[in-house]
């Protein structure tokens, strides 16, 4: 790794941590109903929304009502997004005349955005109208992110309230998340990104005349779409001369801002943040990267503040950072080292004043290996899923890092709530096991951890590996699953594993070598995304309901402090052991064996 690369990573992390306390404090105030500097501006809009939706903001809900409200809100939004895509051909704001989206693809996309996954089987600029992008995808970006934060806030109330049934009001938590947190941050970021060159327009795509016309040979096909062969059995072709290029534009900046801030990740364009209109400059890259970690890092402090013990938040932040730093080091290190087979061919992969060096396949020249690998690690640590390079082209071990970050549950940092409530489930498991080892009743933040909470935490921890591994097994075992693979050998296996890892974790990033827009991946993927999201949220809210009903036990001599270095290290050990037990065998079949074969000089054709 180069010294300038290390410096860039350090600057990024320092800037992220500078925002942790102020933003974390602000978010805690929002959710606790305290007055903030935005109340005068946003307060009337908030109250108006409650009035027209007939919501009583004072009405607290038990966990069952909270969960049903969340599910109803999600499924209605999902059906609306599905309808919007199917009807976009007859709806306005469609200057390119995009037709109805295929049912299977529309279903996958609707599920994907309802679950905050934002898996991209669609190609934004070739599939969706401006209305579908704005009123469909962008709106879901806001609401699905706010739902994730609402679940965390409900869980925090479960931990802090005493002997009550209610865990808050879902509608109030969601509205506040959108109006006071996501919307203001998105407006600021959208303006900054537009300043950096992202389009923000409703004009049709532009047509440009090429300065250097080009041509290519296009195969001639028959009525069935099969290539027509000549007398020698070779495919007949015709020469196509290209003199013009269509340049896709649209309301990009407004969608990009929430795409990163809400850890959504679904791009306006198919190439996501590798596209020059989504991420044109190194500074826009820095802003977007910062936006990915901004709320996830700050929400850990929010957690500490809301449980009335900021040491708890700092301890979890430390545990997350302990997992995050080595991952960055491995991903950047292997990408900067380059492809070992290229060295023997005499290819210069050394960083110099003339080139960034390293493995540049699948990467944008303006970002290079460091910013690409840093992004890949960051986007999979949180549940973001946007990409600025193609992970399929990474060296095997660097390509494994994003998978590992997702396999750990995307708990680094707290996501928009999702990573944080998964982390709390892991803390419960860690506290329980520690309690068993010393023979004391486990407790966390003064609440006794009993059989029900452990069962729920176990479901939360096991649902993700189950859907990922079963989905991968289906992908490998069926012809429909294997048909999407574009590489033979272990790399092809990695493509399937990555796809189901990403969908099962509601991440949304892609290895990019897999053709996912097939009925198999659209339909099975939708099921995996739904189960990965809501079969975790329901037990998390059940834990909240169960804990809220309990009394608080004052700390005693037998209480395990959960803010000490000892507990942080124990928590990291539990996270790594659970991740390794679940996923080491499949990683051995994919990236690990590919790395060993690559270093031995074996490739697959």
């Amino acid at each position: 790794m180069t010294s300038i690369g290390i410096l860039r990573i350090l600057i990024f992390l320092v800037v992220v941590f500078l925002f942790v306390k102020p933003l974390g404090t602000y978010m805690a105030k929002v959710y606790e109903g305290e007055r903030t500097f935005l109340h005068r501006l946003v307060g009337p809009l908030e109250r108006w929304l409650y009035r027209i939706c007939a919501i009583d903001p004072q009405a607290d809900m038990p966990w069952q009502t909270y969960t049903i409200a969340l599910l109803s809100f999600t499924v209605v939004g999902m059906l609306l997004l599905y309808a919007l895509q199917r009807l976009q051909g007859v709806l306005p704001l469609n200057p390119q005349g995009m037709g109805a989206v295929d049912p299977s693809l529309a279903f996958n996309t609707a599920t994907s955005f309802a679950t905050n996954t934002n898996w991209q089987n669609y190609g934004g600029e070739t599939t969706l109208s401006y209305l579908s992008q704005m009123a469909g995808l962008t709106v879901k970006n806001f609401t699905s992110a706010a739902v994730g934060m609402a679940v965390l806030v409900a869980l925090i109330r479960g931990l802090t309230r005493r002997s009550v049934k209610a865990i808050g009001n879902f509608w109030v938590d969601t509205v506040r998340g959108v109006l006071y947190i996501l919307m203001p941050l998105s407006i600021v970021l959208a303006l900054l990104l537009a300043w950096q060159g992202l389009p923000q327009t409703l004009s049709p795509y532009k047509t440009a005349t090429l300065m250097e016309p080009t041509s290519y040979e296009q195969p001639i096909t028959d009525a069935n779409g099969k290539p027509v062969l000549d007398a020698k059995g070779q495919p007949k072709t015709k020469t196509i001369k290209v003199t013009e290029q269509q340049i896709a534009i649209g309301p990009v900046a407004s969608q990009l801002a929430i795409k990163e801030l809400g850890t959504n990740g679904g791009g306006f364009f198919n190439a996501n943040s590798a596209h020059p209109f989504e991420n044109p400059t190194p500074f826009s890259n820095f802003l977007e990267l910062l936006a990915i970690l901004l709320i996830p890092a700050a929400i850990v402090y929010t957690y500490g503040r809301m449980v009335k013990d900021t040491r708890q938040g700092w301890a979890l932040l430390a545990a997350m950072t302990i997992c995050f730093l080595p991952a960055i080091g491995v991903a950047v290190g292997f990408e900067q080292a380059g492809n070992p087979l290229f060295h023997s061919l005499g290819v210069d992969q050394t960083a110099s004043n003339l080139q960034p060096g390293g493995n540049m396949e699948g990467k944008e020249v303006r970002f290079g290996p460091v910013d690409s690998a840093l992004w890949a690690t960051t986007t999979t640590s949180t549940s973001n899923g946007s990409v600025n390079s193609m992970h399929d082209s990474y060296t095997p071990i660097a390509g494994m890092v994003p998978m590992v970050m997702m396999h750990l549950g995307e708990i680094i940092y707290g996501g928009v709530g999702t990573g944080m409530y998964d982390m709390v489930a892991l803390v419960i498991v860690a506290a329980f096991v520690a309690g068993l080892m010393v023979g004391r009743t486990p407790e966390y933040l003064g609440k006794k951890i009993e059989a029900f909470e452990m069962k729920m935490a176990t479901i939360v921890v096991l649902v993700m590996p189950a859907v990922v591994l079963v989905g991968t097994a289906l992908g490998v075992a069926t012809a429909a699953g294997r048909a999407g693979v574009s590489n033979p050998g272990p790399h092809g296996f990695s493509e399937i594993l990555y796809a189901f890892t990403s969908m099962g974790n509601n991440n949304g990033s892609a290895f990019a070598g897999l053709n996912g827009n097939t009925p198999f991946y659209n339909d099975v993927g939708a099921v995996v995304m739904w189960l990965g999201r809501f079969w975790e949220i329901v037990p998390v809210l059940a834990i909240a309901g169960s804990l809220a009903a309990k009394k608080v036990v004052p700390p005693g001599a037998g209480t395990l402090p959960t803010y000490t270095v000892q507990f942080v290290l124990w928590l990291v050990a539990v996270i790594i052991i659970l991740g390794a037990l679940s996923f080491l065998p499949v990683l051995a079949l994919g990236p690990i064996v590919e790395h060993l074969l690559l270093t031995a000089g074996t490739t697959f054709k």
Binding site: Q64, L71, W535
Partner: peptide, 30 residues
């Protein structure tokens, strides 16, 4: 799959979670 089948699958998603809420509620009550 056709529109109707996919909408039915969406509702199945929803009710799978409602069923889960009901089951966990009973488990909690024990």
């Amino acid at each position: 799959m056709a529109d109707v089948e996919l909408i039915a699958l969406t509702l199945l998603f929803f009710f799978s979670c409602v069923w889960m809420v009901d089951g966990l509620d009973r488990l909690m009550g024990r």
